[in-house]
Write a protein that binds this DNA or RNA. Structure first.
Lengths: 64, 64
DNA sequence: TTTTCATGTAAAGTTTGCTTGACATTAATT
DNA sequence: AATTAATGTCAAGCAAACTTTACATGAAAA
């Protein structure tokens, strides 16, 4: 699964820490997701989607 | 988190078993999600979304 | 009525998402 | 050159997603 977190974070001028706080997870979780270590839960994906006002599918790209 | 799986399944005339096979999880997983026992992973939500051709957000309703 | 099918549920185990704490590295300030 | 801010990463642990096996129930069909 690929994602556009790093770019959106840059566009919104946020640090990983800022984003982590905004969606109520740890900084390490944001870092791990950006680095592709694991996928976010559905709830976290929804929080990020709402924050950045982007569809989940545009934020996270899953190709089988 | 609420969801519309049961209804969509009915509309598509599928059993829990059918749906489970279509998205490659166990029948119990589908049942548990329908019953609200836990939320699907992001990948599973995406598979269901694609199968039923509905946005994740319309399939799964999360209200803080 | 007996068999079959769809659903519900439970227990035990594995994997994955996420936590805290800690430390290393790199880039930007002072 | 020294400090600070942002990022990367690791380890140990907990919680949630998902598995298999198994059994119970109700509805439909033979």
């Amino acid at each position: 699964m690929k994602n556009k977190l790093k770019v959106l974070r840059a566009e919104h001028d946020m640090t990983q820490q800022d984003l982590a706080q905004a969606v109520e997870v740890s900084r390490q979780t944001i870092n791990a997701i950006e680095k592709g270590k694991f996928d976010p839960s559905l709830v976290l994906a929804m929080k990020l989607s709402r924050l950045f006002k982007e569809d989940i599918e545009t934020l996270f790209i899953y190709e089988d």
